Computed example of a mutant assay.
Amino acid sequence: MDFQLPETAQAVQKGVRELCADFGTDYWSRCDAEGRWPEELWEALGAGGWLGLAIAEQYGGAGAGLLELAVALEEMSAAGAGTAGAFLYLLTPGFGGVTLSRHGTPEQREELLPGIAAGTTQTCFALTEPDAGSNALALATHARRDGDDLLLRGQKVWISGVQRADWMLAVCRTTPAAEASGRTHGFSVLLVDVKEAEKAGTLRYTPITKAGNRIVQSNQVWFDDVRVPSHRVLGEVDHGFVVLWDILNPERILAASGGVGTAELALRLAVGYAREREVFGRPIGSNQGLAFPLARVKAQAELGRLMTHKAAWLYDRGEPCGDEANIAKLTAANAAWEAADRAYQTYGGMAFSEEYPIARLHRDARIAKNIPVAEELVLAHIATQGLGLPRSY
């Protein structure tokens, strides 16, 4: 058993760390304060090939895998982004690049993957609805046949990145639940041309005011008979759950990577402050009341990193990784939150000042316990799938 990262991942780790040295906490705090996408970093990542790591070389990518993508996100988060940085790798390299690489037709891959690898084509993902969050089986958004096309109608909520997206991966019902042959039958994943639908007046969205993660807007979205040609279906009509699981597992793994990087960043800041800040004639880090909680977070972060790398490794090998992806997400999200919270306590009253990045990391890390899936649902999955306990729902 070899716990050393493969050479490809080590090269990514070194390269992204060097690139992100110019985009530290001050840069991310400015983007957060201005509520703007980190455009300069995005362009640098695209130019350096760091967005196409999991895309085949024939489409302009690096031909690596989800592990390399996860390592890149981890380094970027640790450099200063925190959990907000996960959006840079989730929205397009993850939702778009990884999904199309595995489930896209040759024509879809040829059309979209080169732009995704370069960062010039951007994607977003639409699953959650007002009455169907974690319970995807309750989706009400539906698409009906109209000749060779599908007409998409319904509503989504908490859809991030619509403003920047060229394409949206939208999950909907194509067969009513009453007519479906099974619980997961009758769902499809459609590729929606966002700009075309906006121009036609069939897709509209409204931003949601948020407490954190301000670099990207999250939205309510309405579909009013959005026309989707049949060749824009990902996978097969009515069999979209196969595609959906290959969206959700990488989503959890990449979110976990952001959590591990955030824990690393918060710990680095807290330890640095604890070494320098003196009270009662000695550094506050010499007090076990501060030192022991930080040491415990360090242990949590390392465990989260191991499970995240394992889950990504399994995914790249085409092996089942649902349990590992969920455990990674749970462990890393809690490590990020505990690290940010302990950093807040270490800085004391100064953490409340926007002069430091602690308040930003703290508010951004909290939501990671709820998205992309609430930790209670993760625990329910582990209990039923990992332990074989009876279902509670």
Rank of each mutant, 00 (worst) to 15 (best):
G318F: 13
E236A: 14
G258H: 03
S218W: 00
A340Y: 02
A255V: 00
A255I: 00
N213Q: 04
V216Y: 03
R268H: 03
A140I: 12
A54Q: 14
Q10V: 07
F125C: 02
A138K: 13
V12D: 00
G259C: 05
F241T: 15
A170I: 03
H142Q: 14
A72K: 03
N370C: 01
A368V: 03
T99D: 12
Y273W: 07
A311T: 12
E18P: 05
L169A: 06
I253H: 08
R36L: 12
W42C: 10
G285F: 02
E179A: 14
Y27N: 13
E302K: 11
G182R: 06
L66R: 08
L112C: 02
G240I: 09
A359F: 03
R214D: 08
L314P: 01
L112N: 03
N219F: 00
D364G: 00
S29F: 05
R109P: 06
M350A: 13
L361C: 09
G386L: 13
Q4L: 08
Y356I: 07
C124W: 01
A21G: 11
L387M: 14
G304H: 03
A136W: 13
Y205E: 02
L303I: 11
C321D: 07
V98R: 08
A140K: 15
D166Q: 14
E376M: 04
D26V: 12
P229G: 08
A332S: 13
R305Y: 12
V279M: 09
E276K: 05
A299H: 10
V98Y: 09
E75W: 02
A380Q: 11
R342G: 06
P293V: 05
V228R: 10
T262D: 00
A132S: 02
L377F: 11
Y273Q: 06
E198A: 06
D225R: 15
G52S: 09
I55N: 06
A126N: 03
T184H: 12
D238Y: 11
R102H: 15
G258I: 01
G65D: 06
V162H: 00
R275P: 00
A143C: 12
V216S: 01
L294P: 01
P207Y: 02
G349K: 13
V71Y: 05
K310P: 07
L294D: 07
L290S: 09
L151P: 10
H362D: 07
M76H: 08
T346Q: 05
A380C: 03
T174S: 15
M76D: 01
A79T: 10
S353E: 04
Y273D: 05
H309R: 14
V233G: 11
S230A: 14
K310D: 15
Q163I: 07
Q217V: 06
S29Q: 12
Y393T: 05
A270Y: 01
E376H: 03
